[in-house]
Design a protein around this nucleic acid. Sequence first.
DNA 1: TTCAGGATGTACT
DNA 2: GTACATCCTGAAC
Length: 204
Amino acid sequence: MKLGRNFYDRDTCQVARDLLGKYLVRMQNGVPLAVRLTETEAYIGRMDKACHAYNYRRTARTETLFAQPGTVYLYLIYGMHHCLNFVTEAQGEPAAVLIRGGEARAGLPLLTRNRFGKGPEDLSPYQRKNFLNGPGKLCKALALTRTENGTSLLGDALFVCDDLADVGLETPPSDRAPLTIRTGKRIGIDYAEEAVDFPWRYYL
DNA sequence: TTCAGGATGTACT
DNA sequence: GTACATCCTGAAC
């Protein structure tokens, strides 16, 4: 079923871990796009120098991080890529999970069209391999931009669910195998001093 | 397969 | 003015 507010209203690392293997569903013009989540990272403002809202820093950009759990935090990075995050913990606690990677499960033709401007059958092996393995790539394939910043994950346009049957699709049996969750240091935050070593990256 | 370097716009100092 | 929770390309191996 669709994950509710209570799922996001928890410890951020726990949410990041629990999101692995779940399905992110995005409705684009009535077409369901579904991605199985395989890589996430936790960011916690109260003590994490890698977080945009470190030490409760409140600006126009970080305002979304203080919103209710289950809110979408979407920003532009390096002038050209978007990063999708799910706000966690109680309202007023700036924290979120960055969605770093996934695997396509539904809506493949539209996903590849968004990402590469062509159909699945026309992808090169390199494009197949590097399809959704990065936060910017995932946003491009799902057609997510800052327009979605501040929107809710509890609605019908963008949400996460346990099972593809919730969207009228079939969950592949291989997705039901037990998950092996790995952890490691987060990517691309070399500036974050002691937080560089926090093992807050989770992946299958 | 790996690596270096460039693209590009916004937030914040 | 500087830094940035990234991605792509082309060259070398």
